[in-house]
Design a protein around this nucleic acid. Structure first.
Lengths: 228, 228
DNA sequence: CGATTTAGGTGATGGCCATCACCCGATCGA
DNA sequence: TCGATCGGGTGATGGCCATCACCTAAATCG
């Protein structure tokens, strides 16, 4: 695997696998930028003017209602690209992207993105793959929130998703580095319900927690709860 | 606007605006297929092997939980393309596509899609736009279900979205050609709640219905209800 | 170090809505 | 023409969970 020049990592992201031409174009037309924890790349409703290639750090992607209710769509990491949909359709950003950790990012202005897509076939395909990932994240979120019939079920579903993810990395433990508040935003419920639901799952020996580490003891019980 | 050869319509969809080369390729490598009402193009979990260009008819795009709960993602129409994400990532279909009316469709096998994307720049861009639309549909659904705090709020939100849509076609009336059951599937609630909520909105003179035609009398009241 | 903020835990309460059950009218099919 | 099916309407009920309120411990910070 070739290295992603800008990240100096073996990139897994769609934009890390460019050929020499598109890579050179990307390098000379994007600006490397650093964000401190809490800083926003862009906010919901802003006019879109660039896409953001995450080189390091974690990024919270969310949308907010006027009343202040927050929906967390996903947590983006190195290799992910943010703002592609808004840039392609030349519309406002539909989400807010905010650094959860200090982040290093390549910022590629929309006009250069367009040039790149028109000139380099591999870039077009990469853009399509980025959008396919964005779509899956949104679809999974919709599914997570729509299908289980209760908040408790959604929490169960979320834990199951994590478990599957951990399993795919052959790790029996889940590292849950999110606050109850954030979990509530991902499952369309409230902080108190998260606290109580996790407490109940612990008491019923369905899960086990040690600090941020979580272990699933009875996957079937979780599946029964979410029923999806 | 050039005609979409296969639909013989002035196409609005991304795949209706091809140049002569890609259009010819599409024509000679896809198969025109008709589906009767109720027939499935593909079902959730099927191995993906083609994309589907809707030429006429309406298509319900949905996902189902094991327990039978249904989430309707969107209703696709002429010009829309279905199955792009699964084809691009060479994975199983993540949704079920089902004809709500007799449908005429161009079916393009995945291998030909890949060839097309590699050879024609406009096709790659069109694919990216299709994915951007898919993403927006999923995002909007997630937002609709996540942000309003109650089922009644989600119904209000849905009606507001329709109203905006109707307004953009400068039409004061909304044609609601869906059953209460289907509305429930779009708002993650139950048929009874839909019936009762619509009844309440009627009684409070917030909306007015005559058969399938719906008119919003007090948009502000709806916004207060959904609070998003 | 004291003050403040943040994360998490918990009790009380009340309303909403999922569920079950049943009914009615319209449409359809044989 | 008559069941059968489907879409829609409605009552009763009970449980879940959103909301509010308050508390504790830990972290942060001046």
């Amino acid at each position: 695997m070739s290295k992603c020049l800008s990240c100096s990592q073996a990139g897994k992201g769609a934009f890390c696998k460019f050929g020499p031409q598109s890579r050179a174009f990307l390098q000379s037309n994007s600006v490397k930028t650093d964000y401190v924890r809490g800083a926003s790349f862009f906010r919901e409703g802003d006019r879109s003017n660039a896409i953001f290639l995450v080189c390091s750090g974690k990024v919270k992607v969310s949308a907010t209602s006027r009343e202040g209710r927050v929906m967390i769509l996903r947590i983006a990491q190195a290799g992910d690209v943010l703002g592609m949909s808004a840039a392609l359709t030349q519309s406002d950003y539909e989400v807010t992207a905010e650094a959860l950790e200090p982040c290093s990012v390549l910022v590629l202005p929309t006009r250069h993105l367009m040039t790149m897509l028109q000139n380099f076939g591999d870039a077009s395909l990469a853009a399509a793959n980025v959008l396919a990932e964005d779509y899956r994240a949104a679809f999974d979120e919709a599914r997570l929130v729509s299908l289980p019939s209760s908040p408790a079920g959604r929490v169960a579903r979320l834990i199951l998703d994590w478990a599957q993810d951990a399993k795919s990395r052959s790790n029996p433990f889940i590292t849950m580095s999110m606050t109850h508040e954030e979990l509530a935003s991902m499952t369309a419920t409230t902080r108190e319900t998260i606290t109580r639901t996790l407490g109940r799952l612990r008491k019923e020996k369905i899960i086990e927690t040690h600090g941020v580490v979580l272990k699933v003891l009875q996957p079937q019980a979780l599946e029964r709860l979410c029923a999806c």
